[in-house]
């Protein structure tokens, strides 16, 4: 097996992020990735490139500006009517061409439905390595290659994967795993316009319709500042109300462990963890959750974790910052009541 880069592949330079925009809306994972790309590019001493694909439109300029503010040095806008809605065929065709033309050494995408669909296709046309669902990215000092770390077997182990003899090196990263970078409106960058001239009739798949989810339907869990989560320790569906009550006084979102969503105590879009959402709130209150690894990977990036569990040896106390050993059925209402009182005092004071 060869691990050395050929001379031709050594010419690949720069760290790219494919900016996901659908109908003018940018998926925040793209900004999170620009923050990561900035760190990698600074270590390598190269530029950060952002690629924006879509139909020509006024919002493209705005998105280019945002990409620069979040860390890009150069923005490639790839614009064509055939790229208006995401479809695998035209997107992978133009991305393959753009990569072959500009030769970036690293290409990052969000592990979203768009990112996973596109990454799997272009890694195959480019015949290169693709590491899925990474939680950590770094540059290996020995060979300047991307060291992409991802959980395996549900997070019980981690592995670091490298693509040594092929370029570009590709990776997808889950939303909310990386920190949102500071927006810097004073940054400047170049815009390179690419006009692919696609003939719509060569593309077989057509988008007949798009049915948006209603906003209320999707819990805004991933972006909540405060989350109160309940687990199987609450014992029955009715007791989950105690979680909702505390969330209400705190203006928080409600989360849950998998057994609770499976039992139908709460809807499945509120599940936190490996097969649910990754969250990173300022405060995560976990009540009656044991802290299994599949739950942990979804919430351990929270700034502060406060766990309530009746078992002093529950694994959640291994990664929570603060713990209360006690009965969640009593402590949750006590917290709700006392927060309510403090809020009243606070209101009167102001």
């Amino acid at each position: 097996r060869k691990f050395e880069l050929s001379e031709e592949l050594k010419a690949y330079k720069g760290v790219w992020v494919i900016v996901e925009q659908e109908r003018g809306k940018v998926h925040t994972v793209s900004y999170e990735l620009l923050g990561e790309a900035r760190k990698l590019a600074d270590k390598l001493g190269v530029e950060v490139g952002a690629v924006i694909l879509g139909a020509p439109g006024p919002f493209i300029n705005e998105i280019s500006g945002e990409a620069i503010a979040y860390g890009a040095d150069v923005v490639y806008t790839v614009l064509d009517a055939a790229l208006a809605e995401y479809r695998t065929e035209p997107y992978s065709k133009v991305m393959t061409d753009v990569v072959n033309t500009f030769k970036p050494e690293i290409v990052l995408l969000g592990a979203s439905t768009l990112g996973r669909d596109l990454a799997g296709a272009i890694a195959t046309t480019l015949l290169t390595g693709l590491t899925a669902d990474c939680t950590e990215l770094d540059i290996s000092p020995e060979n300047r290659s991307l060291a992409a770390t991802r959980p395996t077997f549900g997070g019980t182990l981690l592995c670091t994967i490298q693509t040594l003899a092929y370029r570009p090196q590709m990776a997808t990263i889950r939303p909310r795993v990386m920190q949102m970078p500071e927006r810097d409106g004073t940054r400047t960058g170049r815009v390179v316009e690419v006009t692919p001239n696609l003939a719509e009739d060569i593309f077989v798949t057509k988008v007949l319709d798009f049915i948006p989810d209603s906003d209320q339907e999707e819990a805004q869990l991933a972006f909540a500042d405060i989350i109160v989560s309940g687990g199987k320790g609450l014992q029955k569906a009715e007791n989950f109300k105690l979680v909702w009550d505390l969330a209400e006084v705190l203006g928080a979102e409600v989360g849950a462990s998998r057994p609770c969503t499976q039992a139908g105590w709460v809807t499945s879009d509120r599940q936190v963890g490996q097969t649910g959402k990754t969250v990173r709130p300022k405060l995560y209150i976990a009540a009656g959750i044991s802290g299994a690894i599949q739950h942990r990977v979804g919430c351990e990036n929270s700034d502060v974790i406060l766990a309530i569990n009746s078992d002093p040896n529950a694994p959640i106390f291994d990664f929570a910052h603060h713990g209360i050993v006690g009965d969640a059925l009593q402590i949750l209402p006590a917290l709700t009541e006392q927060f309510r009182q403090r809020r009243l005092v606070n209101r009167k004071a102001s």
Binding site: L127, P151, L157, C159, T163, I316, H321
Partner: peptide, 24 residues
């Protein structure tokens, strides 16, 4: 292995957080 561009360079256990939760 020969046909695989990716190379697994390390497998390890997640680092436990340095300290356990402070109990209230």
């Amino acid at each position: 292995l020969k046909g695989s561009p990716t190379v697994v360079s390390k497998v390890f256990v997640p680092k436990p957080r340095a300290e356990k939760a402070k109990m209230i």
